[in-house]
Design a protein around this nucleic acid. Structure first.
Length: 268
DNA sequence: ATGGTGGCCACGCCA
């Protein structure tokens, strides 16, 4: 089995523990990065994941909101949590895993959604989102330490025109405004990151990973956005075997509004 | 047409 990493905004890991376990049984990613676990660390369902073969678990959780977790079949080392914007919320967790000859640093991110009004002067949540992106510029794909890197998670921005159901209708909607998409692409490129989903799926094809709960029929309307991302250091482009976006997961019983994205690599 | 749904957890906040 080649090395694989999945990312999934689960919108409550406790409520959807059975969905996650089913996903792990069916797809068996080596590493699963969860966001919006909404679970304090002492209540995290560690035992259920241990039983499913995911014995290596790092978590950064809080009561009610946010929270990220990285689950792995392989040992995880050097867990690190970076705080952003001087707010004590749980939006980042990095770990290191071995894949083939590579030591791979995996950043698991949950970027602030940013509220409804795309104006930092009147909406503190949008100001927080922009401030968070500023601080994300410190995340580089390549350091001098010989590690390869992945940066995955719910980044809450759909950068390309083909990452939303209607570019024109979403230009003033938070997640697709020019200030967000331009800042996002600049920080990705300046940080030396490759957009691995777009490396595998050509930019002219529509990709969505999220569909709002507020639709009578999400599949018929299909008003999705690509809010979840897998970035990698450039060396990983050559190792990438494929990307799977599990659209069907949006139709599962009591689903998350996000679906899993899986990257598989030609690494053992 | 400018509300619609969902999760947390105890009621309004966040997405």
């Amino acid at each position: 089995m080649p090395f694989s990493v999945a990312t999934w905004n689960i919108n409550s890991v406790r409520l959807r523990i059975d969905l996650v376990l089913q996903f792990l049984r069916d797809y068996q990613p080596d590493v699963l990065c969860l966001q919006e676990t909404k679970c304090p660390d002492d209540l995290f369902p560690r035992e259920a994941f241990h039983m499913a073969g995911y014995e290596h678990i790092e978590i950064s959780g809080q009561k009610g909101y946010h929270g990220v977790a990285t689950l792995s079949r392989r040992p995880l080392s050097e867990p690190a949590r970076v705080g952003f914007c001087n707010i004590a919320d749980c939006r980042h967790l990095s770990t290191i895993v071995t894949a083939g000859a590579k030591r791979l640093r995996i950043h698991n991110f949950y970027v602030p959604a940013g509220g409804d009004e795309p104006d930092p002067l009147i909406n503190p949540k949008f100001a927080h989102k922009l401030g968070f992106l500023e601080e994300m510029k410190a995340m580089n794909a390549v350091y001098g330490d010989g590690h390869a890197s992945l940066l995955v998670g719910d980044l809450n921005i759909a950068p390309l025109e083909t990452d939303v159901w209607s570019h024109k209708q979403l230009l003033k909607v938070v997640s697709h405004t020019p200030i967000e998409t331009e800042t996002f692409e600049a920080l990705r490129k300046n940080g030396g990151w490759s957009d691995l989903m777009r490396h595998y799926i050509p930019p002219h094809e529509k990709i969505y990973t999220w569909w709002s709960y507020r639709a009578a029929d999400w599949a018929a309307a299909d008003k999705g956005r690509r809010l979840d991302h897998i970035w990698g250091s450039p060396d990983l482009e050559n190792d990438l075997a494929n990307i799977t976006i599990l659209r069907e997961a949006r139709g599962w019983d009591r689903p998350s509004d996000h679906v899993p994205v899986i990257a598989r690599f030609n690494l053992d």
